[in-house]
Design a protein around this nucleic acid. Structure first.
Length: 494
RNA sequence: GGUCCCUUCGUCUAAUGGUUAGGACAUUAGGUUUUCAUCCUGAAAAUAGGGGUUCGAUUCCCCUAGGGACUACCA
């Protein structure tokens, strides 16, 4: 019980959840579940200026959507200001931190000066040795102040990162970090160390950008007399040009991916493999399977480039795995958004001609495109011909290979006649295929001479599902109408 | 500039001293097919460079180069 593994995902509510956040959360989750530990959530809202309204709710929503359920109530840092303040003052009392009354202007000047002299920029420790009287006076006159960490003058601080291995820093290069800001809020450093201790976090799993501030955190643990956790610095995720993944690389927020129709399964599977793999050749993993296979010692040191093509492939894979009911449920909003259908009671109206269709019709249409979809958002474009009354395509599209419009018209007429002679009951994919192919044989022509124009007449597309399955979904009446429409289109064109 | 981290096909990665350097995505050639997609088969494609250590280095060490992060009263 004492040594239970506890990890936390600690985002700050300053914007939308992005891929990097999700990777951190995912590895936290996998590590906790794999090792019978707890996955906790903490909201690091200690920057009043950067707080983005709604982003806390979005964090919850995204984690739930991805299936990364956390344990217990989230810790909200802004509700714990007293604790941080108390800890900062304790450090001052023990001589490990000090009041600093420097103005922002002065700090700015110091920085500029150091830059001009090509010196490493850090606080010049102006207030580090203020007399008690000076401090008392400043406090008395209500001069704004911060509390800074008193970094020892010399020494080496070394630690064993779970992923990077041994890392060491010379204390001489470390700045006297601000711990408590003049607005009374803690900085990340104070707040996260305080809370990680309070929450009994065993492994701090976070992005590599935190590696350089880890010695400050270690100092804090030492000065507080607390046992430090293990540090686990995850490699970064890069964009296609190998710079830190950002907006200009396209979608990076989870909300955008969701909107484009990426499935949580695909996102999880893909992101898990950015910097980790199970060590064998399997590629497809559910969240549960990831938990089972996960281990921190298989996490890489090197950063990984976010490769959208592979995500698309995975997403297509997961779409193909979906049951039709589930897929239809996911696709419906996209069809409505594209103004193809609108719900009316239990059924749906086609916006094009106000015809009423039922859910089964929509499902049949979606079923035919399931293996072609890479993202849910593509469903509207892929299935639109099932919901439109008049198809908009050039007559020339009806021409098969080296054939011509006249022949297309002749063949379509023959098909129309033949199909008119069938009963509605014959309009299944299998029966149609058998019968139409028999019919084509008697015509002494190539199969494409009939099937290509038929398919185009039914779909208006140069690429689509086959004509028999489309005709089945459309039904005899619409099928015949579309063939007629095509013939008329050719006539008009002539 | 300073500190720290990193380096296997285009990309994600396997192989921790001995392999024809393996797989996946993407690319590409075929097959199936009325088109597209799916599916199947094949091809091309990598150990950043230089030194060591070793009988033997992708693997261990050093240097160089390149990339990245940090360098805020942001996280």
């Amino acid at each position: 019980m004492e040594n239970k593994n506890r990890v936390r995902f600690a985002p700050s509510p300053t914007g939308s959840m992005h891929i990097g956040n999700v990777r951190n959360a995912l590895y936290d989750f996998l590590f906790a579940k794999k090792n019978n530990g707890e996955f906790l959530l903490r909201i690091e809202d200690t920057d009043q200026d950067r707080y983005a309204p709604g982003s806390i709710e979005q964090i919850y929503e995204v984690l739930k959507w991805l299936g990364l359920d956390w344990h217990g109530e989230p810790i909200i840092q802004s509700t714990r200001l007293e604790l941080y303040k108390k800890n900062a003052e304790e450090l001052v009392k023990n001589g490990h931190a000090y009041y600093c009354f420097c103005s922002k202007e002065r700090l700015e000047e110091v920085r500029k000066d150091q830059e001009a002299k090509k010196l490493p920029s850090c606080y010049d420790r102006h207030c580090r040795n203020l007399s008690e009287e000076e401090i008392a006076n400043n406090l008395e006159s209500r001069t704004p102040f911060v509390i800074r960490l008193k970094v020892p003058e010399s020494g080496i601080i070394e630690f064993e990162d779970v992923i990077k291995g041994k890392v060491s820093f010379d204390l001489k290069t470390i700045d006297d970090q601000v711990l408590l800001k003049s607005d009374g809020f803690p900085t990340y450093h104070l707040a996260s160390v305080t809370d990680d201790n309070e929450m009994k976090i065993s492994h701090v799993i976070r992005s590599e950008e935190w590696l350089p501030s880890t010695p400050k955190h270690l100092l804090l643990y030492k000065f507080f007399g607390w046992e430090p956790p293990r540090f686990v610095h995850l490699p970064m995720i890069l964009g296609s040009d190998k710079s830190k993944l950002s907006k200009r690389h396209g979608a990076t927020s989870v909300a955008e991916f969701k909107e484009q129709g990426y499935l949580p399964e695909a996102l999880i599977n893909f992101i898990a493999f950015l910097g980790w793999n199970p060590g064998d050749e399997r590629e497809i993993f559910s969240l549960d399977e990831l938990v089972d296979a996960f281990s921190l010692d298989k996490v890489h040191k090197a950063p990984a480039v976010f490769n959208m093509e592979k995500l698309d492939w995975l997403n297509g894979h997961y779409i193909r795995q979906k049951s039709l009911d589930e897929l239809a449920r996911l696709c419906l909003p996209y069809l409505e958004k594209a103004k193809l259908i609108k719900p009316t009671g239990e059924d749906y109206n086609l916006i094009d001609n106000n015809e009423t269709v039922n859910l089964d019709y929509i499902k049949s249409a979606i079923a035919l495109e399931q293996e072609r979809m890479k993202k849910l958002s593509e469903v509207a474009d892929l299935t639109k011909f099932f919901f439109q009354n008049e198809l908009d395509y050039p007559a020339e599209l009806l021409i098969w290979k080296k054939s011509n419009l006249e022949e297309a018209a002749v063949n379509l007429k023959a098909l129309n006649e033949f199909l008119s002679g069938l009963t509605e009951a014959n309009f299944t994919k299998e029966i149609l295929e058998t019968k139409v192919k028999q019919f084509i044989q008697t015509e002494q022509k190539g199969i494409g001479d009939f099937l290509w124009p038929l398919r185009v007449a039914l779909t208006g597309e140069k690429a689509s599902p086959g004509p028999f399955e489309v005709a089945h979904v459309l039904g005899q009446e619409k099928t015949l109408k579309r063939i007629n429409d095509a013939i008329n289109k050719i006539k008009k064109n002539a």
